[in-house]
Design a binder for these strands. Structure first.
Lengths: 148, 148
DNA sequence: CTCCCTGCAAACTATTTGCACCGTC
DNA sequence: GACGGTGCAAATAGTTTGCAGGGAG
């Protein structure tokens, strides 16, 4: 899986570049972020790091994730009614589809977004720097499960 | 301003229809929601209701807003790093532009969204029920202020 | 007169922070 | 060795909830 290794390398490089130390705990967190497909929460990362480092604390995960966010090496998806989710594979704004039943989050292909931003900027006079586009619904798996 | 009166009437009707009582406090909250252009927070609503009902509590505002949300009479815009904002004028999903400096929120015209949802549903197999589209940037006012 | 609503305070939850000890560089 | 990082516990902030008294229908 060369793609996630590439991401891991980038993250480590970014940390080094800014004088952040590479501790074993951080390395484990980076690994989870670079490998997991499913937009994990801090809690989920914590659970995955724990086996290797049983004394790891949630605070450390929060702090590391926060550092990575500052270095633009992870995208934070905040949900006001749930815990935040993190994307270490594509650390830049992009649309998401969220299953409201199983909480799975996927990255769909949506093309027309760039045009939309440009049009918006023109119409409102805003300088647009970021966006957030989430679709909510029920995934095929959960729909099938509900029908039983 | 006949438009906001129309909304106020609709909200009251929805409450009555579902056996919710129309208390003076609730009426005051509905009024703020139906009149204010600026997507107020619970705190903001509270501040505006206080003059008329000095003993009003934040809890009551939260509870009323929650009831209205359940009746689809207000749109809740949750922000994980800030307090939630409410839209009583257009209580259905629609895009927003948020100024990251003054926290102002506007409703821009964005057309291509319906097509996007349809395309997404087809590509992912999700049944899409809701969406959330926010653009973040700096409004013309704040940009001008920064240049001084 | 019956419940629902209100308002106070306490509870909750995700996240952040303070601080003494520890380990990377 | 210096100094940033860790892990525990306590603090925070927005929101929710429990409950006794009050008022709408």
């Amino acid at each position: 899986m060369p793609d996630s290794e590439e991401r891991l390398r980038k993250m480590i490089e970014a940390l080094r570049e800014h004088q952040f130390r590479i501790t074993p705990q951080r390395l484990a967190i980076l690994r989870v972020l670079s490998e997991s497909k499913g937009h994990p929460s801090v809690e989920t990362i914590y659970e995955q790091v724990k086996p290797a480092f049983p004394t790891t604390s949630l605070a450390t995960v929060y702090k590391t994730v926060s550092v990575l966010k500052g270095l633009n090496q992870v995208l934070e998806l905040g949900f006001s009614d749930d815990s935040n989710r993190y994307d270490g594979k594509k650390p830049y704004d992009h649309p998401h589809v969220v299953c409201t039943v199983c909480k799975k989050i996927l990255d769909p292909d949506v093309s027309a977004l760039a045009d939309m931003t440009e049009e918006l900027s023109r119409k409102t006079g805003f300088t647009i720097t970021r966006h957030r586009l989430d679709f909510f619904g029920i995934c095929p798996d959960c729909r099938a499960a509900a029908k039983r």
